[in-house]
Nucleic acid binder design. Structure first.
Lengths: 112, 112
DNA sequence: CGGGATCCCCGACGATACTG
DNA sequence: CAGTATCGTCGGGGATCCCG
């Protein structure tokens, strides 16, 4: 199914998440910064795909694009919650992993 | 989130789904057949990853491996339902597409 | 600032052959 | 039947430049 195919692509979930976290409209560069500085080409691609999918939208006043989640995008985030919950539970029960008792949390890196 | 990283890989969801559909234990070749004949190397890879993730497991009586979902795997499938539901709704409302407005909205195909 | 065009590279995928 | 090892291919991303 195309939806999961899109969401499975690299950075897509990260972008959706950042869009969700920021709440309000957010600029291109700002979004790029939040995503650990992913390349503009990739960000453009993901954004285009998300726009075509009706998940994200941009207001372009003039010179300052403002990206945001559409209502549909909000529903998506909501629909993902159970899976995220499961994912956390899953991450917490792995046989071997997860050292860091002392403190520095690891970057939530999605895998380079 | 490594979980989604794994699930995003090609064939992974398909394998999980087939494992779920079959209900009981299922053989390697049989599983391969159900997946439209994906290569054994890839299937081995996915199976190994799923086993390490605690999502799938295999009983090996002797000469006949039997793969099945673990309880955790079952939870995963359950956690995916809302997303699948959203995904179906999403597929039915695309801006341009969807030649059949009249109503047969089906095709419960989960295949990638 | 916003984002398209281009090039290169790595890693996943796929088929085949082979062992137990 | 079950699974491993190897090799070739292909496409997606990452970087960078550049234009509006």
């Amino acid at each position: 199914m195309a939806a999961l195919d899109l969401l499975g692509r690299r950075w897509t979930l990260r972008v959706v998440w950042e869009l969700h976290e920021s709440g309000g409209p957010i600029g291109f560069r700002e979004l790029q910064r939040r995503c650990d500085g992913m390349s503009s080409s990739v960000l453009t691609g993901r954004l285009t795909e998300l726009r075509e999918a009706g998940i994200a939208a941009s207001d372009v006043p003039s010179g300052a694009a403002a990206w945001r989640l559409t209502p549909l995008g909000g529903e998506l985030v909501a629909a993902m919650q159970p899976l995220l919950t499961w994912s956390h539970a899953w991450a917490a029960q792995l046989p071997d992993e997860d050292p860091a008792p002392g403190g520095q949390g690891q970057g939530a890196n999605t895998s380079p």
